[in-house]
């Protein structure tokens, strides 16, 4: 049936075009859909997506405690040597020696924000933060020590 195919071709074509036009027409008439961020103007109220990866940070709780055990899994996972962990041995009250981090050195200038270190961490000590205003006048400022001074590992994390 040539004629039937011809007509159904035309009808299908027109209906698919109208479907597209309905979508764009919806976007045209609904200004709440606009996703443009007028960045320097709305800096105070800027909202970034949860999955945005800006830099690696180490969260500390109110007692200045983190959960990093110094296992160096992140250092091993990093493909370009961004992370360097210097460990030390703390003496526990029982007189035993316990491994802990002295400095978690993170070189932002070399980091590709690939998230492999965060995925490798067994104790969720590090995560990605949505900061992106990283420009500084001195390159050495991009080498950061992530554990805060005087911080120690949280109780019960091995």
């Amino acid at each position: 049936m040539f004629l039937k195919d011809y007509i159904s071709d035309v009808v299908n074509g027109v209906s698919s075009l109208l479907k597209g036009m309905r979508k764009t027409g919806y976007y045209f008439t609904h200004s709440k859909e606009i996703i443009t961020e007028q960045y320097p103007d709305n800096r105070a109220t800027l909202k970034l997506a949860d999955r945005f990866k800006g830099e690696v940070v180490m969260p500390h709780d109110e007692n200045n405690e983190h959960t990093c055990t110094g296992c160096t899994a992140c250092e091993l996972a990093c493909p370009n040597g961004t992370i360097k962990i210097i460990t030390k041995f703390d003496i526990t009250p029982e007189g035993k020696k316990k491994k802990a981090i002295d400095a978690f050195i993170y070189r932002l200038e070399m980091c590709t924000l690939c998230n492999l270190c965060v995925a490798a961490c067994p104790s969720d000590a590090i995560k990605m933060a949505p900061n992106f205003e990283h420009s500084v006048f001195d390159r050495s400022k991009l080498t950061k020590i992530l554990n805060k001074p005087g911080s120690k590992i949280k109780e019960g994390i091995e």
Partner: peptide, 13 residues
């Protein structure tokens, strides 16, 4: 402006 609105942008402003 029409292009911007259809593509969920703001356009020249």
């Amino acid at each position: 402006k029409v292009a911007a609105r259809i593509q969920i942008r703001l356009g020249p402003n």
